[in-house]
């Protein structure tokens, strides 16, 4: 059995109260974010069932939502998920080079995880940073105007201290 930490559960209850009586299903997206950051960076069937229980909705209602949105990982990912934007404006400023540089450095292709389980490389669509291209996101942080030197430093830094997006952090809760 999995269970939220006390902080996460408190936050979940606070979020549910933001929606009118009977409309608690609205809290599904935020609570899935919370669950993903609490339980290893991805949503296992067990995690999704747990969320369904918290919101008192059917598991299928959770599955269909989790599979629709690209930020929910339905498979395990590395400790650091490197999401490189590859849409037009980033492409103009070298997104391809970023993908191949990381790929060569870590010996992985987009969609794969490095042998040590540390890094997963993923290509994503426009992240709203087109003016600071090329860019990637890791956890909640944006890394912009990337160069090879910056990528070297970044991978070194993240390798030593993996950074995962935590919804709790957005509420000033440190975990």
């Amino acid at each position: 059995m999995i269970e939220f930490s006390k902080e996460a559960m408190e936050l979940a209850q606070r979020i549910i109260k933001r929606y009118p009586e009977g409309k608690h299903k609205s809290a599904l997206l935020p609570i899935l974010h919370l669950a993903q950051s609490e339980f290893g960076g991805w949503l296992s069937p067990e995690t999704m069932d747990y969320v369904a229980g918290i919101l008192n909705i059917k598991p299928i209602e959770v599955y269909e939502v989790a599979s629709f949105y690209s930020m929910y990982n339905l498979k395990p990912v590395g400790k650091c998920l490197l999401e490189v934007c590859r849409t037009g404006p980033c492409l103009l400023r070298g997104a391809d080079d970023v993908v191949s540089y990381i790929g060569n450095k870590l010996n992985i292709k987009p969609g794969e995880t490095s042998a040590d389980g540390m890094f997963t490389l993923k290509t994503v669509e426009c992240l709203g940073a087109c003016g600071y291209a090329p860019m990637l996101q890791c956890g909640a942080d944006f890394y912009e105007n990337l160069t090879e030197e910056k990528l070297d430093l970044l991978i070194e830094k993240l390798g030593a201290q993996p950074e995962r997006s935590t919804y709790l952090k957005s509420f000033g809760v440190n975990v």
Partner: peptide
């Protein structure tokens, strides 16, 4: 009651807005 619907990738801005 009003809501700001923000794309999930802007999670760090969620923190700024919450504050």
């Amino acid at each position: 009651t009003s809501y700001i619907y923000i794309r999930g990738e802007y999670m760090y801005i969620v923190g700024i807005l919450e504050k």
